[in-house]
Amino acid sequence: MTKRIIDHPVLGTIENERTVTFTFDGKTYEGYERDTIASALLANDVRTIRRHEATGNPRSIYCNIGHCFECRCTVNDVSNIRACLTLIEENMVVKSGDVQPDPLNPNNEGPLPRTYEEYAERKAGDTDENA
C-alpha cells in the first residue's frame, strides 16, 4: 500500500495498524482497521466508487464527510451506504453502484425488460458486444 502517509513531521508515524480484509466488486483488498471504505480504496489506488445511475459517468469521493453522497455503494447488501463514513470490517462485501434501468425514457428502443434480471442480462450482453 504505497498511498499511505506513514511518516508525518507533526502528526507522527503510523505504527502497528491492524489490517482488515474486505472485497470491492469481487476483488479482495486490505485496509487498516480505522479506515473508511473510501480511504481504504484510495490507499489501494481505487478511485471510482460508483457510476452515475443514468449516464454511467464515474464518481469517487467528493466531500469525504458525508455531505455529497457521491461515494454511495452497497455494503453487505444494504444499498446507498456512504463509503466516506463507513469503517471497513473484516469480510465486508462492498459493491459499486451502476447504471439503473430507465423504463420511462422515450428514447429506449425495443421491448422493455420485465424484470431486473432481464435488464441485467441484456446489459451484460451490451458490454460483451462492446468489448
Binding site: R47, T48, C63, N64, C68
Partner: peptide
C-alpha cells in the same frame, strides 16, 4: 474521480 473538495 480525483476531483474533490479541499476539505475532502
Amino acid at each position: 474521480p480525483g476531483v474533490m473538495s479541499i476539505g475532502a
